[in-house]
Design a protein around this nucleic acid. Structure first.
Lengths: 340, 340
DNA sequence: CTAGGAAGGTAAAACGTTTTATACAATGCC
DNA sequence: GGCATTGTATAAAACGTTTTACCTTCCTAG
């Protein structure tokens, strides 16, 4: 298809009776044109409905006005299936609207390092990478190409890299733990995922510190992200075998739903005997019975912050980074203990 | 930022000791080069990790390898907030993975006609528009620009436009109605949205025909999409005031959740007195108690079909279109009648 | 009256490709 | 031996911008 039946800068120049340089300068506020000429050109351009071609503009080593989004955690899940991982679904929506508000396009790019790379991949102005792994090849690739990027969640193993934004994971963990402690929990188990990302690591660290400060034994379990609800059900058996804790804090919603289901199947009452909390809200925590208390992240705030940083990076100015947002605890039935 | 510290065709040409034309021809299988030269150039290019710049390639009136996705129904909701509208969340994910499988990038473009249009907007090879309205300005704009597009759901008021794919809405409606009739429903109310899109219109039409064929009175209600759960709760009062039907079929999940909530608040038993079905599955239908039976669409199949059609259109060949996929009914508690 | 700016404008190069037209051998034919 | 044909390769134009460097005028200060 002829991409180019559109109005070009040449058409505008001819119609306005000036050079194409004049048109470019008038429209971009550069050069030294008289106010009158400038105004005249603007009028003609408007009238003709002229809009500079992004490709041609991009070629001239300017920017594209588009950023890519890589959902790293989903890549880890194998198939690119966002279903049920609703943090990311929400994040995509939030990022798209935040990008639009800044006049940017958002391109979804599943895995930069996998075989058939979509053509525009390396022409993006920059990238947002959610939850990068330790030694993430996508990050390495962008570094090598010199393409600016920001990460949602700290890049593990790179304490020097400041261009990230995230909810305050340590604060989130304390929020949950304090909530449980206030409801009488003396022994709290943590179920983390196996991905080596900041999300898992920072929650674990904060949990360990919190337990240590209270002289409470730390009970840590690891469960692969892809094990899903079923993995949680199985894990519940191991947890009870180790001795019933007062509460279980699962970092992912599917694990929480599974663990709770497993506990209940063993005849254990939630929340009366054991309380359950999910570290990220999802349909699993909302749909379970009893409904599961969960941390609600701030995708709008976080994606907005990421785009701010990325825009500064692209513009070559030094951004204020990192930026921290706050998660909120949504209390549901799984931690609503009967009085007495 | 210099977009272009990458390897250019010139570098490859110099290294291989040939002209840039030769490189271009070798890599694109054009021209009349000897097999040996061709092979040699390919090797050098591979070794250097050369990949043609999509922008420069796009300029030469070739294609971009990228398509845009406009979620029309979300635009209609006012804010661009996909939360809770999980058909679209799933559709975005499915479309992204299907696009990748075809070597295409997917760009999210909120509303083409609203003020600050992202730069790349008009450089896309084509567009997918979900649920276009009657006289949709986005469609008009693409027509005017001569940009190919396909629609998820028929474009209302344009029976001649074949480039769409969708679940078979009429069949879906019959699936639900037959299901309800088999469980003893003699009177079924339909709650549709107010958007003038094919989704609403075709379900209504199939409903009317189905009722007429069975000599059953049609009871039609309209409720604005944006009224959400609350609107459903209110509507429940009107429905009962008109005389209790045996079942209510709501085209959106939020309406279904609201209507059910409103019925139960009036002391009406679901499913024993009234059954409830949602036309599209969402967290609202899954999370409600009782859980609500719902149609589960086929985002993977539909987005794949749409991309097939769009690719043909872009390539200039005549696609097989329209293409119809099938929804499935997921039975839940809201239609599980106690025996007897 | 002239040197030196400033003010207002433009021609042309550059960006990295693809494509069209052309050049140069070597071969085959009469 | 001249002439068309074939096989291989390249130069240059084109795509639509932005940017750099330059060119006129016109004014002002000395």
């Amino acid at each position: 298809m002829a991409r180019t039946q559109g109005i070009t800068i040449k058409d505008v120049a001819r119609r306005a009776g000036v050079s194409i340089t004049a048109v470019s300068h008038a429209l971009n506020g550069k050069g030294t044109l008289s106010a009158a000429t400038r105004e005249h050109i603007r009028e003609v351009a408007d009238e003709m409905g002229y809009a500079a071609d992004a490709l041609a503009r991009g070629m001239r080593s300017s920017t594209m006005g588009a950023v890519g989004l890589v959902l790293r955690s989903l890549d880890a899940l194998g198939d690119y299936k966002p279903e049920g991982v609703d943090v990311f679904e929400k994040f995509v929506g939030a990022a798209a609207s935040q990008a639009l508000a800044r006049g940017l396009s958002l391109m979804l790019v599943p895995d930069l390092t996998r075989a058939p790379v979509p053509p525009l991949t390396f022409s993006m102005d920059g990238y947002i990478i959610t939850n990068p792994h330790r030694d993430d090849p996508v990050v390495a690739l962008l570094d090598k190409r010199g393409i600016p990027y920001v990460t949602y969640g700290r890049a593990p193993g790179r304490p020097d890299f400041p261009y990230w934004a995230s909810e305050d994971d340590a604060a989130s963990a304390r929020l949950v733990l304090d909530h449980l402690a206030a409801r009488g929990a003396r022994s709290i188990a943590l179920v983390r995922g196996t991905d080596a990302n900041a999300w898992n690591d920072e929650h674990e660290e904060a949990y360990a510190a919190w337990c240590a400060a209270r002289n409470m034994p730390a009970r840590l379990y690891e469960l692969a992200e892809r094990a899903g609800v079923g993995g949680g059900v199985d894990l519940a058996r191991r947890i009870t075998a180790d001795g019933l804790p007062d509460a279980v804090f699962c970092l992912t919603g599917r694990h929480a739903a599974g663990v709770q289901e497993g506990l209940i199947a063993q005849g254990i009452a939630v929340p009366d005997q054991v309380m359950v909390v999910a570290g990220s809200d999802s349909e699993h925590s909302r749909g379970a019975r009893p409904t599961i208390s969960a941390l609600e992240l701030d995708p709008v705030g976080s994606s907005g912050a990421l785009l701010d940083i990325l825009q500064a990076l692209i513009a070559g100015t030094e951004p204020a980074a990192p930026r921290i947002t706050q998660a909120h605890l949504r209390e549901r039935e799984s931690t609503r203990r009967r009085p007495g």
